[in-house]
Amino acid sequence: MNDLPLETSIREESQRVIRALREKEAFEIERMEENCETEIEGFRTKIEEDTRSRILQELSRLENRAILERRKLKTRIIEDFIAHTVEEAVNDLRKSPGYKDFLRETVLDATGRIEGKTMVLLKGEDLVFEKELLDVLKASGRNPDIAIREDDTIVWGGCIVPDEKGGRIFNGTIERVYFRKSRSIRREVMRILRQKGLVD
């Protein structure tokens, strides 16, 4: 019996299978490489996109922060300017003829609402007006029992008139007047600055 054809057939079949396996292997390797490349490319694109979006986000954040800080800085500068202007105005307060009138009217108004013994408290620098104020009070004839004293809690000027019996204090200090009017003062300063084109 001749085994040759069978052997040849087996050999040929084996070679065909091996060839097919090699082809499949090559194809699979190629496919995997392609997949790998696609995946790497996808990953690279995603990372690039993420980075780009992160950079844009950071840029936008910085830009927005800059806008906000600029706005805040503008408010701070105006506030400093107002504080400086008020300080100057307070320093020159006693040079204004209106100040004495203010003091006189405030004292008259407060003492007129108090019965019995009372006291008018002034800042040390304003004691120069003591005699004048007492004369005005005497002339008004409202409350004869009034004394004038120094009060170091008054910072800028004006007067305080306590009404111990009534449990009240008539506060006519400049700092309270400023506190009460500060919003309209700030608004007016802003209006002038805008008018002069110094702020937008």
């Binding site: 449990g167 009240r168 204090i169 008539f170 506060n171 006519g172 007047v177």
Partner: peptide, 9 residues
Amino acid sequence: MPAEIEYTT
């Protein structure tokens, strides 16, 4: 200008 009233009661 009338003085502001502060209550201590």
